[in-house]
């Protein structure tokens, strides 16, 4: 069995849906990171069957808000001195920028590619987001993140 060492200090992003860790890696801009990052795919999970995990070493100040939008099942553990010192509950961010694209062919973003793709939270209970320009809903069933 593949073994990835535990980290002494850092962030563990757990319960990522299997196969989605690469996308999260991208959204958190970890490809530009100069610190150690481990991405583990298809780990056996009681809760999910299979899951992905990302471990980030020696860094604690990453903006993780976007993860609440991507998948609210994800859990975040903050590690210090080999121990979990904090578990973060993911909240839905009020706005997400350049995470998903508006699917409305009539939206201005469909013809002007340089405009930031911005979605704002309009209903927290229903986890409903809308394009700030045209009000098109983000539908997770039609648009894969």
């Amino acid at each position: 069995m593949l073994k990835v060492d535990s980290i002494e200090r850092g962030i563990v992003i757990d319960h990522i849906a299997a196969g989605k860790s690469m996308k999260i890696y991208k959204y958190l801009n970890l490809d530009e990171a100069d610190f150690t990052v481990a991405m583990i795919k298809n780990v056996a999970s009681k809760k999910l069957g299979r899951k992905d995990i990302i471990k980030i070493e020696n860094v604690l100040d990453i903006d993780l808000n976007v993860l609440g939008f991507i998948d609210h099942n994800i859990t975040i553990n903050i590690i210090e001195n080999d121990k979990i010192v904090k578990k973060l509950n993911l909240e839905l961010p009020q706005e997400v920028s350049n995470v998903v694209k508006c699917s409305n062919p009539r939206c201005i973003t469909s013809i002007e590619q340089e405009i930031d793709q911005r979605f704002r939270l309009v209903n927290r209970e229903e986890k409903l987001y809308r394009c700030i320009y045209c009000d098109q809903a983000y539908d997770p069933n039609k648009q894969d993140i």
């Binding site: 939206c107 469909s110 320009y133 045209c134 009000d135």
Partner: peptide, 24 residues
């Protein structure tokens, strides 16, 4: 195109009035 006046407003120091944007 829907949302074009919003894009204008976000980049404008003068008041922008939406005179109709697509079917929006």
């Amino acid at each position: 195109k829907e949302g074009a006046p919003k894009v204008a407003a976000l980049n404008s120091p003068i008041p922008v009035i939406n005179g109709g944007d697509g079917g929006h």
